[in-house]
Amino acid sequence: MSKRIIGMIVAICVATTVLWAIGLIVTIQDQFFYKASSVKQEQKPTTLSMEKSGSLSIVALGDSLTRGTGDETGKGYVGYVVDELKKKTSQHVQFTNLAIKGQRSAQLIGQLKQKEVQRQLKEADIILMTIGGNDLFRGGEALRDLSTTQIEKEKEKFAQQLRTIFQLVRTVNNEAPVFYIALYNPFNDLDNGKETSAVVRSWNYAASEVAADYQFIICVPTYDLFELQVNDYLYTDKFHPNKEGYKRIGERVASLITLTKGEK
């Protein structure tokens, strides 16, 4: 090996040692002697809006149902809706699932106020939503306490919050149809099935009344899908739908979606 190569390597070594030492000095100066201040960044003219044509954007909001809990394939009803849509349209289908398990309507309101969520909603062509299941059942707690006054109060609160949710969605995007998937009763084969069914029906009625006040917000019933042989369509937790249950919801929602000519 020639002397020159070795000399070169040694030179590189020395140079990089100096470089890394500078790096360390920068570290100390940047990390330890930084005065607290807020992040400032010049706002660039944001080119956020993606070209709308050429892609069909679906945004899903809500709770575990939209998430697909209980479906072993992980699709949930939204997955089946998207599958159906892909058959109907030649466009590229872009799908965003913003649902969070266990989410209640108050939390959804908080989510809808986020900037990025609003941006995605703005670009949505179709919005799918489930909410209210956790408000009503509270993880099975509601079954123990069926006192009507309490449930009525909760219902009023829920209707109020649902109104806020729709209002928020509509201010961001007043064109895309919103499919609000209503509640079903997972407990209707239990002893107090009659009572719980009555409660679910009255909640659904309240929700559909709220939905009726807004344009293109469609309240999709699911109550009837789970009325007979409810257990065939429920997951082992006896609360969330299973694959078959989701498929039925998905088919129903998909059948409601009509694509305009431009969207096909």
Partner: peptide
């Protein structure tokens, strides 16, 4: 996040490689 600030990536890399060297 009180001390959070923006630095360009080259500086970030210099810091990280400095630490890696350390």
């Amino acid at each position: 996040t009180t001390a959070v600030h923006l630095i360009p990536q080259w500086k970030y890399l210099l810091i990280e490689f400095g630490l890696a060297f350390f």
